[in-house]
Nucleic acid binder design. Structure first.
Lengths: 315, 315
DNA sequence: ATGAGGGCATAAGCTGTCTTTATGAGCAGC
DNA sequence: GCTGCTCATAAAGACAGCTTATGCCCTCAT
């Protein structure tokens, strides 16, 4: 059993208006990375070396993190340091933050490197938001010195870039492939109907019929968005909005708060479903699937870094 | 070659040589939170007020974030500020980091509040690691002033705490419910077989048979762990380890690196599957499902905060 | 048109945090 | 006992971020 000793109670719980910022209660990324290094290497000093600081700095940083969290994280001994049980748990949670930060970094770097990049990627929003950072991380692991640039836009914009030779590889979601482009399906996405767990639909026995879906006011992206287009097409142009929001995130938030059923990409709600913040409502008789495709100008099969990235996306 | 990989196995992200730690390339949590506030409120000044700093501080912070990333994030105008296209993308990525930080905070706070907490929770590792932070966040949203304490351990330890009245509500994963406890199923988990995308099994046509699974050396958690017990039971005590590792994370990392097939909880690999870092191998004829249950001492139905939390976990 | 108000930028000074260097102390194995 | 590993402590310096105090720009209402 995890023996977690609270250390000292310094109560800095100021109930600030509007919700206190999490930044003051969570160690910064450097500290979390250091903790991961300690977990992996089993020694403060080694972790310090790896993260490029001195041993006393590491020691002090870990200690102040323990003070901040009010929990002992590592068992120090003259032969090294091991995580406490609580420390192991904290480290697992910390790893998620650091992984998110790595994805952020990979993406941000691609946004920056416009100029001299050896691989220019154009992607639709959903792909750029949810999938590309992971791919870029994988690519970096294989080819650390490949500078990538990223341009996000809709399908038409992606096609335009490719045809103007301003991008080497594109990714689009959607039913049809823009003319002038070759493509390969790299994954499947699906729009799904979700509700808050206590919504009546969350407990329905039988799957939802298309007609029922079309007849119910839904939380939707605005007209013109990719997901809305797919939905409208599937329902015959008849989706009834309960409210229209301009970002996937806003739609999710509204659904979570129980405002009503929402229709969203499976990619966007994986986390929410896993934790049951949202519940999936089965649907019958309507095809809400869509392919995710890699695209390139007809005849110009991807080569070099583009091929590398392409192969990553398919495994 | 039995286990005892200790912490070494935790191979999260190798420090990229030359690149340095991600912490230096990613804005700190405060800056990301500020960016989210700007996105939401449409004004630097308003975001500053909400995050409890002055307008010049916000201005400078956003600016230095833009400098750091090399991308313009915000379109300033005398009527307010809107995100640029790149800024919207960056904000979406940033949101993931902040959400992970919020989960971290919720969990960490529960580890700390041992003493005077009004709700004492005991949970098995998998649940504590993957689900509980989300539940705690939801609980905090409903009842902001409920101090929660968390104790993580195996099923037996959870039962022990409950029976000793050292915990109000427990969560266990497993086939059987410890004696002396009432329980309710709150979710279903399943062990799944995963491989790196280029492993031969990733492209098999037909599902794997139980016998085949039992005959193949697998990357596994050490004997005695919850997942290992379920697997052994399902296969008839016959799982053959290729290597045994002491943490879910280590198993994942080994599988991703292509060392072989691994067996893991569905909960642990949601993200990896979504991004195709791992591929699920269908299995036939073996029941790898397990229930996740909330448990409490027989007769003592959860009341107050415990009931509240329980109802959250079921939706 | 003119003043009020919201919104953002700049400059200067202060404060706190994290860092390094330098040192001490505990434990293992030869 | 010596060497090598570990971690802890102390003192001093560097840097980032904050605040206060301004100023400019634009829009809207009078």
């Amino acid at each position: 059993m995890s023996s977690v000793e609270g250390q000292q109670g310094r109560n800095g719980s100021r109930a600030a208006a509007g919700g206190g910022s999490v930044a003051h209660r969570v160690p910064d990324l450097g500290a979390l990375e250091l903790l991961l290094a300690v977990a992996r290497l089993g020694s403060l000093g080694a972790a310090a070396r790896e993260t490029g600081i001195t041993q006393p700095a590491a020691s002090s940083r870990i200690r102040s993190m323990e003070r901040q969290l009010g929990v002992a994280l590592v068992d120090r001994s003259p032969r090294g340091s091991r995580l406490t049980d609580a420390g192991a748990l904290v480290t697992d949670w910390a790893r998620r933050i650091v992984e998110a930060a790595e994805a952020f970094d990979a993406g941000a770097q691609a946004l920056r490197d416009r100029r001299d990049s050896r691989l220019r990627v154009a992607a639709s929003m959903t792909i750029a938001e949810y999938l590309l950072p992971g791919w870029l991380l994988a690519l970096r692991a294989q080819r650390p010195d490949t500078a990538v640039s990223l341009l996000a836009g809709n399908s038409a914009a992606v096609a335009e870039r490719l045809l103007a030779d301003e991008a080497d590889l594109g990714f689009v979601e959607g039913v049809s492939v823009p003319t002038g482009l070759d493509s390969v399906v790299i994954a499947h996405d699906r729009l799904i109907v979700v509700t808050a767990p206590r919504h009546p639909w969350a407990r329905r026995g039988r799957p939802l019929e298309g007609a029922e879906l079309a007849a119910t006011p839904l939380i939707l992206r605005e007209k013109g968005s990719g997901t809305r287009q797919v939905l409208d097409a599937a329902l015959g142009g008849l989706a009834r909005p309960l409210i229209e929001l301009s970002s996937t995130t806003a739609v999710k938030a509204a659904a979570v708060s129980g405002a009503g059923p929402a229709v969203l990409s499976e990619l966007a709600v994986g986390e929410e479903l896993a934790v049951r913040r949202l519940v999936r409502v089965p649907v019958q008789g309507v095809s809400l699937a869509r392919d995710l495709r890699a695209v390139w100008p007809t005849g110009h099969r991807p080569v070099g870094p583009a091929r590398e990235l392409l192969s990553l996306t398919r495994g």
